[in-house]
C-alpha cells in the first residue's frame, strides 16, 4: 500500500517526501516475482536449499523489492518522469518481513530538458534495518510525466 496524501509532483522541493510504500512480504510475492522476472535460483524458493546455504529460509531476490520501491517514484511523478534508478542491495528480505520504503528530494534544478529532481531512496525492514539504498532522477517536462491525476 502507499500513502494517499501525495504532494503534487511539480510542487516537490528539496526536502520534499515521496509517498511511502509499505508491505509485508509473502512467499507468494517471491514466487510470483520469480515467474515474472525469471530468477529461478532455488535459494529463493527451496527452503532446504536456502538452509543448506546458511540462511534461515528462502529470501527474496533483490530485484523484487527494488521493483516494489520503484512504486514511490511512479506514485510521486508517474512512470515517464523516471530517467535513472539506482539500488544497492544491503540486506536479505525474508517472508514475513515488513517493508517500508520512501524517498526524499535532495536536489531540484532547471535543465534544458525540464526540471530535474534528484531523490534519495530507502527501504527498511521491521527492525529498522536498511534492505535497499538508492537514488533516482525524475525529469518533469512540459509534455507531462504520466502522473496519475
Amino acid at each position: 500500500m502507499t500513502d494517499t496524501s501525495i504532494q503534487p509532483c511539480d510542487e516537490l522541493a528539496v526536502g520534499g517526501l515521496l509517498p511511502m510504500f509499505r508491505h509485508v512480504v509473502t512467499r507468494t510475492d517471491i514466487v510470483r516475482y520469480a515467474g515474472a522476472g525469471g530468477d529461478f535460483n532455488p535459494i529463493h524458493h527451496d527452503d532446504d536449499y536456502a538452509r543448506h546455504a546458511g540462511f534461515p529460509s528462502v529470501f527474496a531476490m533483490g530485484l523484487m523489492h527494488a521493483s516494489f520501491l520503484s512504486r514511490v517514484l511512479y506514485d510521486a511523478c508517474g512512470p515517464l518522469a523516471v530517467k535513472r534508478y539506482r539500488i544497492r542491495f544491503t540486506h536479505p528480505v525474508f517472508p514475513g518481513d515488513q517493508l517500508t520504503g520512501g524517498g526524499v528530494v535532495e536536489e531540484r534544478r532547471q535543465t534544458d530538458s525540464g526540471v530535474l529532481l534528484v531523490c534519495r531512496l530507502f527501504m527498511k525492514n521491521q527492525n529498522d534495518r536498511d534492505v535497499l539504498a538508492g537514488d533516482a532522477d525524475l525529469m518533469l517536462t512540459p509534455a507531462g510525466t504520466g502522473a496519475t491525476p
Binding site: R32, G35, A36, M64, S67, R71, P79, L80, T148
Partner: peptide, 17 residues
C-alpha cells in the same frame, strides 16, 4: 501480457503499464 505480469509482481500497478 509480460509487462502486465511484471508490473503486478513488482507491485507497480500503474495504468500506463
Amino acid at each position: 501480457g509480460k509487462v502486465a505480469e511484471f508490473a503486478a509482481a513488482g507491485r507497480t500497478p500503474h495504468p500506463l503499464f
